[in-house]
Amino acid sequence: MVANTLKLFLEIQKKHFKTAFISKSDAFINTLLMIINNMSFAFMWWVLFQNRQSVNGWTFDEMLILFSITCNAFAIYALFFRGIDNIYRYIDSGSLDNFLVSPRSPLFMLSTSHSTFVNWGDFMCGFLAFYLSSYASLPNLFLIIIFSIYGFLLLFGFQLSIASVAFKTPNLERLGHNFLIAFLIFWHQPASIFVGWLKVIFFTAIPAGFMTLLPVEMLREFSWLTFLYMNIGCLGFFFLGIWLFNRGLKNYSSGNRFGVR
């Protein structure tokens, strides 16, 4: 079962690759633009930290780590599971039926149905940011990979939880997109600026704190307790997303639009 799913996953990814390479020059130009795009963002923070050496104890090194995890986590999401972005449209138009008739898990088929090749540029930037930081070392590289995977799980769970509201309320695409951007904005801030009740929001409504504050704390000084908190947060949101999706699916009315996937 797992082997078959993995085989199918690889086949789908191969198809996405082939589609992206229909025009090789375009794929590379756009990937390059994505790298420039990410670098400009890092540059903006570099300028700020040139003016202020630290913000509540965070320096540009911590920002590079944050940047590395964000880029890698988003790359995993966008390259392999970006179909989640289209849930709103599928539900509103009734096209979700196409995925329901598949013998595979509808969530698996839906999430792997879309990929954006340009996000390979995110991976490059993610690892470059880590290499440029003072935290660069082999054991830390291992940790960054682990954190990036957890970051992906959190992002996936958060996006799926928000998208599942579309089962109840139509025309939520723009609002859902804004929630995702809000999440990414919180994810791109030095976690040290969030204090008091803002910290509560940072770990609940917009749970970016699990992937900003905790990983940096662990890179400074690894603690199993912090690792446990990260697990609870990221896996909690991941399973919450899946639970909400499955619950929403039970209420879904078919649009009678069958097709083959």
Partner: peptide, 8 residues
């Protein structure tokens, strides 16, 4: 594709 360009 112009999405990345628009983002840039």
């Amino acid at each position: 594709e112009i999405r990345s360009l628009a983002m840039a």
